[in-house]
Write a protein that binds this DNA or RNA. Structure first.
Lengths: 214, 214
DNA sequence: ACAGAAACTAAACACTTGTTTAAATCAAAC
DNA sequence: GTTTGATTTAAACAAGTGTTTAGTTTCTGT
C-alpha cells in the first residue's frame, strides 16, 4: 500500500507501529512477533535495533517526551500574561496534545497503572513531576498575588489532568459520540476538543477567581 | 500466619488474593501459578472453581459490583436534599469508596485502558454508565431548577471522577505523602480523604452555583 | 572491484503460559 | 464398610513467549 519514496527511518517506523499495538493491547499483550508483522520486519530486528522489548518501550518514551516541556518553560518565564491567562494556555495546550495523541497517552497510563516495570514508571513520573511543578508554581503565584482564591494547588492539578484523562478514556461511556478515531496524522475531533476546553476554562475560572464568576 | 478458625470459603479466598495480584501486576502479568501460590492452593484449583482465568476475572467483577448502586438509587429518589447537597453526598460516597478499595479500582481501570477482553469492558462500562446517568439526572435537574448554572453535565462528571482517579493514582507524583497503604480492612488515609472531599466540595460549589462562591 | 561493516533472515533455544488429565484423597449417605 | 461424588494433587500438554545464533544479503568507502 505505502511506497516510502522518502527515506523512512526503520527504527522510527517500528516505534510508530509499536505505539499502536501497545495502545491497543498493552505491553504484555503485544508480542514481538506481532510488532514485526505490523512493521513488516523480521522478528530479530526489534532486538537488533532496540536490544530488548523493554528497551523498545524506553525508546518510545524518550522519543515522545520533551515535547511540551519547552512550551511550559516559556510560559513560566512569560511576564505579559497573568496567571489566569497562563492556566488557560495550559488547558489549551494539554487538551490539544492529549486528544491528538491518544495512543501514546494510553500507553503511558497503562504503564502507570500497572506497577510492574518500575524503571519505566520512574521515567514517566519524572516527566509528569516537572510539568506539575511548573503548573503548581503558576497557581501559587496567583494565590500569592491574591488573584486566585486560596485553593489546594495539588488537587487543582488533579482536577485539570483528571478531567482531560477521564474525558478521553470514557467518552463512550458518557454517551458522547465521537467522530473518526484516526490519530497522530489526521488529528482529533475538533468539536470534542472545543467542548473540553470550554468546560475547563469556565470551571477553572469559577474555581480560581474570586467572586465574580464572569 | 493466619488460622482460619471460621469456615473460609475457598472460592472467595482465591478471589481476594487474585484481586491483590491483578492490582499489583495486572491481568496479563499475573499467572495462575502465582495465584495458586498466593492463595495456597493447587494450580488446578483455579480452573476447577472458575473454569478459566477469564472467568475468574468475571467472577471478581460480579463479586465486587452492585455495591454503590442501591445507595445512588436511594439518593435519586430522595426529595429532602436539594441538588447541591446530593452532589456533595455523591462526592463523599465515591471518594470514600474508591480510596478504601484502591486495589479493585486499579484492576477495573487497567481493564478499561487495555482494550483487550471486550466482554469484561462491557461489564464495567455498563456499571459505570448507570451511575453516570443518575448523577447526570441530578445535575440536569439542578440546571432546570435554575439552582445550577448551565454547565456541561457530562464533562462535569468527568471532572468529578477524573479528579478522584487522578488523585488516587498520582498522589506520589504530586508530592503528596501518603500514610500506610494497607487496604480493604485497615482503610484509607483519613487526612487525604478529607482533603480530597474538601477540594471537590468547594470546586463543585464554585462551578455549579450561581454567583455567590460561598 | 573488493573488503569490511551494517542490515537482515530463518531457525532454534530455553522458558513460561493456561489448561487438562488421571489418579489419589476426602466426606457423607446408606 | 462400601459406594458415590466432590475435592485435591502432581504431572503432562500444546502453544506462545523473548531472545540468540549463525548465516546471508546489502550497503559503503576506498
Amino acid at each position: 500500500m505505502f511506497n516510502f519514496v522518502f527515506e523512512m527511518d526503520k527504527r522510527e517506523h517500528i516505534i510508530q507501529k509499536t505505539i499502536e499495538l501497545f495502545s491497543e493491547n498493552g505491553f504484555d499483550n503485544t508480542s514481538i512477533r506481532e510488532i514485526s508483522n505490523r512493521a513488516q520486519v523480521n522478528v530479530a530486528m526489534v532486538n537488533y535495533y532496540f536490544g530488548s522489548k523493554l528497551k523498545l518501550f524506553e525508546a518510545i518514551m524518550e522519543y515522545k517526551s520533551n515535547y511540551l516541556k519547552t512550551r511550559l518553560e516559556e510560559l513560566q518565564a512569560n511576564t505579559e500574561l497573568d496567571e489566569m491567562e497562563k492556566i488557560k494556555v495550559i488547558i489549551d495546550e494539554y487538551a490539544t496534545r492529549i486528544l491528538s495523541n491518544p495512543h501514546f497517552h494510553r500507553v503511558m497510563h497503562q504503564e502507570l497503572l500497572l506497577k510492574t516495570r518500575p524503571d519505566n514508571i520512574a521515567i514517566i513520573k519524572k516527566l509528569f513531576a516537572k510539568n506539575y511543578q511548573i503548573i503548581r508554581n503558576i497557581l501559587e503565584e496567583g494565590i500569592r498575588k491574591k488573584i486566585f482564591r486560596d485553593v489546594d494547588s495539588q488537587l487543582t492539578i488533579s482536577t485539570l489532568f483528571g478531567t482531560i484523562n477521564h474525558y478521553m478514556q470514557n467518552a463512550e461511556v458518557l454517551g458522547i459520540q465521537e467522530g473518526e478515531k484516526k490519530e497522530e496524522t489526521t488529528g482529533h475531533n475538533e468539536i470534542l476538543r472545543a467542548r473540553l476546553i470550554d468546560h475547563l476554562h469556565s470551571l477553572m475560572q469559577a474555581h480560581l477567581l474570586k467572586g465574580q464568576n464572569k
